Amino acid sequence: MAQTVEWPKKAREIHNHHFDSTIWNDFAFRDDDIVVATYGKSGTTWMQQIVGQLLFGGDPGIEVATMSPWLDLRVPPKAEKLPVVEAQTHRRFLKTHLPVDALVFSPRAKYIYIGRDGRDVVWSLYNHHANANRAWYEALNDTPGRVGPPIEPPTSDVRQYWRDWMDRDGYPFWPFWENVRSWWSIRNMPNVMLVHFADLKRDLPGQIRRIAAFLDISVDESNWGAIVEHCSFDWMKQNAPKSAPLGGVFWDGGARVFINKGTNGRWTDTLTADDVNDYESRAVAELGADCARWLASGET
């Protein structure tokens, strides 16, 4: 007798300056939907680009920020966002930064979760936050529907930014450990695949093949070279307005700030040995040894 799968069930809502998780309650899934999930600054846009290139055969003109919206971002509100997504006729690929228990999880969809070492996440978050402009703050803080305090400009000290993020679990964004833990806990679900940022850097073609197989996408080999090229970080940086939300208008320096460096280890020149030990010990305590090892390197 086949074993019954116990699908995750939504247990709570999350609201803040970014999130309105209730949009998933009203979202009508289709059988071939794809959900790209991360904590944030972990390769989300990179994965959206990969999925878009696989779906559209290496088309250089697709704009994933428009085609693949961040569904639980509270702006624009769900009354505007849902009809646009529901009108899409291509295979939909959506983005979320929610932990599993705040998401409506559907057996009809396929989920790709991307992990990245938390120290690299913070350095990328800092660039994202420090270069945000007035329009970014106005959209998040001043539009109707915000719950809780506004998001404030960051400190000029990146190490203090990292310390605040550690001490206040994801501040000023949202909790980190529960996000990783929630997705790791369902990694063996038949419609879930975990991908690591470091593996995308080590073997991008191999990871794209793996993702295509998981999504049941047959690759036209005549388009393979274009697909790989358009998923390279250099190509995405050169064509950043196609990937960044609204073409990058929320960041001083534009879309090339949003698509920043794509490098790991920038924290090594700033964090002390005690800082590193603090993070690594915390990761094991929060996630367990196996998940902590995977998050650090992609190794299982």
Rank of each mutant, 00 (worst) to 15 (best):
Q48M: 11
Q49M: 13
G57Y: 06
G58F: 01
D59G: 09
P60M: 06
E63V: 00
S68Y: 05
S68R: 12
P69D: 11
P69R: 15
L73P: 01
P76K: 12
P76I: 09
K78C: 04
K78V: 01
E80C: 08
E80F: 06
P83F: 05
V84E: 14
V84D: 15
V84L: 15
V84S: 14
V85S: 10
V85A: 11
A87P: 03
A87I: 03
T89M: 07
R91I: 10
F93G: 13
K95T: 06
T96M: 14
T96Q: 12
D101F: 05
D101T: 07
D101K: 07
L103F: 11
V104Q: 10
F105L: 06
P107T: 08
K110P: 12
K110S: 14
K110T: 13
I112A: 09
Y113N: 09
G118P: 05
R119D: 06
D120L: 11
V121W: 04
V122I: 08
W123H: 03
S124L: 04
S124I: 02
H129K: 08
H129D: 02
A130H: 11
A130S: 14
A130E: 01
N131L: 00
R134A: 13
R134I: 03
R134L: 11
A135R: 04
W136F: 14
E138D: 15
E138W: 04
A139Y: 15
T143F: 12
P144E: 05
G145C: 08
R146Q: 10
V147W: 02
P150S: 00
P153H: 01
P153C: 01
P154F: 13
T155V: 00
T155Q: 00
S156G: 05
S156D: 12
V158F: 08
V158K: 01
Q160G: 01
Y161N: 07
